[in-house]
């Protein structure tokens, strides 16, 4: 074997791309195999099979015959009031959390990008919720919202607003907003860090030039900062939306979908269908619908952003 064949990367670095020998390719595949094999077996294959299950009547239990039922699951979903209810809640949750997360994170990132005192403390605090397991975030806020021993109710008592004391997670009207606030708290740090990185990449000269031209702070933000960080904003809001729509652990711990299904996110609904009632096919169909909806919403969002950019 020649040295060149052993180190094709060196040869390629300065010369034109040349065909790799067969033994090289084999070597590369051998290096990749230990990673690719598990990904194919336990990620790609399950996903394809999961999508397929959505078109079957699969149920829990050993040796259950699975038969292809076409769109029957989706017809059933269309008429399922519980599903529509959960879907509406999921949309409210995902859009609400994503928008609030973004607005609050942008504000915090702008503050952290300035030379303020306590900036160090704020930076550390801004990252801590990110470091917490979702289950612990859920428990933490359960303690804050606790009707008797909670921080929030005690605060309202101390400021003399006893009328505002309520069972935040147990009340029909406050449960969803309370849960959304937790979602914002949990996801804000990551968004803040990403936006801060984006802000630090905005060239200072642009601001100075605009300031010399007499642009106000708001105008500079609107016409210099915002366009410069637009790609970061689009990327992080899209990801946040996907993550929020698919989130599970946080709300599972906080309310488990209650009270009366007021916080029954689609993921919780699908979980119950699959693992409480054993309707695998129906749950998978729900998953498929969610993917289609997420893709459609993202497509609309990204297209609008792209058009604005041009």
């Amino acid at each position: 074997m020649t040295t060149v064949a052993e180190r094709p990367d060196v040869a390629r670095a300065d010369g034109p791309r040349r065909a790799r020998s067969r033994s090289d390719r084999l070597g590369i595949y051998l290096l990749l195999l230990p990673s690719l094999l598990p990904i194919v077996v336990l990620s790609v294959f399950p996903l394809v099979r999961g999508i397929y299950l959505g078109f079957t009547d699969a149920r829990a239990g050993r040796n259950v015959e699975i038969s292809f039922t076409g769109l029957a699951n989706y017809r059933e979903l269309l008429g399922d009031e519980l599903f529509w209810n959960s879907f509406k809640i999921g949309l409210l949750w995902a859009v609400g959390v994503t928008v609030l997360q973004f607005v609050l994170a942008l504000g915090l990132a702008l503050l952290l990008n300035q030379r303020l005192r306590f900036r160090g403390v704020a930076r550390v605090l801004a990252v801590v919720p990110w470091a917490m397991p979702p289950v612990v975030v859920g428990i933490l806020w359960k303690l804050v919202y606790h009707p008797d021993a909670g921080l929030l109710n005690e605060f309202f008592h101390r400021v003399g607003a006893d009328g505002l004391r309520t069972n935040w997670l147990g009340d029909f009207s406050t449960a969803l907003p309370a849960v959304i606030l937790v979602g914002v708290w949990a996801g804000m740090p990551q968004t803040t860090v990403v936006l801060l990185a984006g802000l630090q990449g905005v060239p200072r000269e642009l601001h100075e030039a605009a300031a010399v031209d007499g642009a106000s702070t708001w105008h500079r933000f609107r016409n210099v900062t915002l366009p410069a960080i637009a790609p970061v904003v689009v990327a992080i809001t899209s990801l946040d939306f996907i993550w929020n729509f698919n989130s599970f652990g946080l709300v599972y711990v906080l309310t488990a979908g209650g009270p009366g299904g007021k916080t029954m996110l689609p993921m919780l609904f699908a979980y119950e269908e699959a693992f409480r009632y054993g309707n695998y096919g129906y749950a998978a169909a729900l998953g498929n619908v969610m993917v289609v909806i997420i893709v459609a919403l993202l497509a609309v969002y990204l297209r609008r952003r792209l058009r604005e950019a041009n």
Binding site: G50, L239, N246
Partner: peptide, 17 residues
């Protein structure tokens, strides 16, 4: 791509495997 798909699609087949 895999970020897009909810866990529920993966978990049932993984559980069966």
């Amino acid at each position: 791509l895999s970020q897009l798909f909810p866990f529920v699609l993966l978990i049932i087949p993984i559980f069966l495997i």
